[in-house]
């Protein structure tokens, strides 16, 4: 048999020894082996070498098994300690975030713009509406102006102007919807202006001849100005400035920062608390599994 053809069968010998040849290849090899002494010798050598190789493994070192188990157990302990530290850290972070959240809430509530206001007027009082809209306080003047009467002083006497009847329902016969509030509504009346008292006029005797007759509309505008001022004074104490529609109210920058901090710290507190609970439950599950196995 030529060496070239035997080389082909050399490759099959190892698989033949391992039992990995197909039935067809086994038949071919065995047919060749029956005619080739060299290949049979080669097969015997391969079998001997394989057996010796398997026996050539060195003895497993004494004590190595115990050392392996011990090192793994030490690693387990270190991991448990690490887990407990992790839980403690998570708990501390959670508590710190909650504290920050509470502080931000307190600061936010203490800021001037956020304090609850106490209105001086009862809520059902129309005047409380009028506080934001001074023009609502202005009665529509439908009163009459009496013709000047002859007073004590000779010459010009000041006309008596009837005080607008704010409380009289009969006052506004032309436009009932503009009627001033009635006494039954138990409202504190705004500061009264008594235009019929001539001493209220700033009158200089030296200017007497030149004194013009007081203008009724001017008087009324004075009244309305005073009412407006009174309303503004009250409003500044109790109500924020009513801003026109569409214009956002100006807030101090501190509130926005505090609100943002509040939201962030709240979210962090929730997240860290959830992580803390998950870690705690996983440690407890692991411990209970260990106890069950024991």
């Amino acid at each position: 048999m030529s060496k070239h053809s035997c080389k082909k069968y050399d490759f099959m010998i190892d698989d033949y020894i391992d039992g990995l040849l197909s039935d067809d290849d086994v038949r071919k090899l065995e047919a060749h082996l029956s005619t080739c002494e060299d290949c049979r010798q080669s097969l015997r050598f391969s079998i001997a070498l394989r057996n010796m190789t398997r026996s050539a493994a060195l003895e497993f070192p004494v004590g190595l098994h115990e050392r392996i188990i011990e090192s793994v157990n030490e690693d387990k302990k270190a991991k448990n300690v690490g887990s407990k530290r992790k839980i403690f850290r998570l708990g501390a972070i959670s508590a710190a975030c909650m504290l920050l959240c509470l502080c931000c809430t307190a600061v936010f509530l203490m800021l001037p713009g956020n304090r609850k206001s106490e209105s001086k007027l009862p809520p059902d009082c129309p005047m409380s509406e009028a506080a934001t809209d001074p023009s609502a306080m202005l009665p529509s003047f439908n009163g009459s102006v009496n013709a000047p009467e002859k007073g004590e002083d000779e010459g010009y006497t000041y006309p008596v102007i009837e005080e607008p009847a704010l409380s009289s329902p009969e006052y506004d016969e032309n436009s009932p919807e503009d009627a001033a509030p009635t006494p039954d509504e138990t409202c504190a009346e705004p500061e009264e202006v008594a235009p019929n008292d001539k001493n209220d006029y700033e009158y200089s005797s030296t200017d007497a001849p030149a004194n013009p007759a007081p203008d009724v509309m001017t008087n009324n505008s004075n009244i309305s100005d005073r009412l407006e001022n009174a309303a503004d004074a009250e409003k500044s104490e109790t109500h924020p400035v009513a801003s026109p529609e569409g214009v956002p109210s100006a807030r101090p920058g501190g509130e926005e920062i505090t609100l943002a901090l509040l939201i962030v710290s709240g979210l962090l507190a929730v997240a860290s608390f959830i992580a803390f609970l998950i870690s705690l439950s996983s440690i407890r599950t692991h411990s209970s599994n260990k106890e069950n196995k024991k």
Binding site: A57, L58, F60, H65
Partner: peptide
């Protein structure tokens, strides 16, 4: 460990 230690060592 017991099943594989010798092979790993070899």
């Amino acid at each position: 460990v017991r099943q594989t230690e010798k092979q790993i060592y070899n």
